[in-house]
């Protein structure tokens, strides 16, 4: 019988290699460790200080999904955190009640953050992926008189 061996540490065994193994030798399930060491109270460790393992999707990127990207304008932002609570991709970096910017490794460019931003003009706007951030800021619109629905 042919089976694919999988282990809980990448590299310990050759993964994806097809070997002839018995039915009772096939690994039952796979365990992926999110961190390189055993951690307690992850909720008390800020992301910057976590020993993320290579298995953690935090170490991966989906930046290539984007055709448009949000650009952040600190000057107008009121740190309301609307963008933070509704970003589906954990890509709004907020620390100590302040919005710091966008995590472009994980942002997919959905545009939700722009829609929920309450300032006038908005503190987040979508631009072409290739747009230079400085150039984008230079193009920022003026305050709108009254938004017509």
């Amino acid at each position: 019988m042919k089976g694919v061996l999988a282990t809980d540490r990448r590299g310990v065994r050759e993964l994806g290699a097809e070997e002839l193994v018995g039915w009772d030798e096939v690994t039952q399930g796979v365990v992926l460790n999110s961190f390189d060491i055993e951690l307690e109270n992850v909720a008390h460790i800020p992301p910057e200080e976590r020993p993320y393992s290579d298995f953690n999707s935090y170490t991966a990127t989906v930046a290539s999904w984007r055709v448009i990207k949000p650009v952040y304008n600190r000057d107008i932002c009121i740190d309301c955190q609307n963008c933070w609570v509704w970003c589906p991709d954990t890509s709004i970096i907020s620390r100590d009640k302040q919005m710091l910017g966008i995590d472009y490794d994980h942002c997919k460019g959905c545009g939700v953050c722009v829609e929920v931003c309450p300032t006038n003009p908005k503190s987040l706007l979508m631009f072409a992926e290739a747009e230079d951030p400085e150039a984008a800021l230079a193009k920022w619109p003026e305050k709108k008189k009254k938004e017509k629905k």
């Binding site: 909720a43 999707s57 935090y58 170490t59 991966a60 954990t90 620390r95 100590d96």
Partner: peptide
């Protein structure tokens, strides 16, 4: 927003 997230991007 000051919580340390446990659901990762990508």
């Amino acid at each position: 927003s000051t919580v340390n997230e446990r659901f990762e991007g990508a």
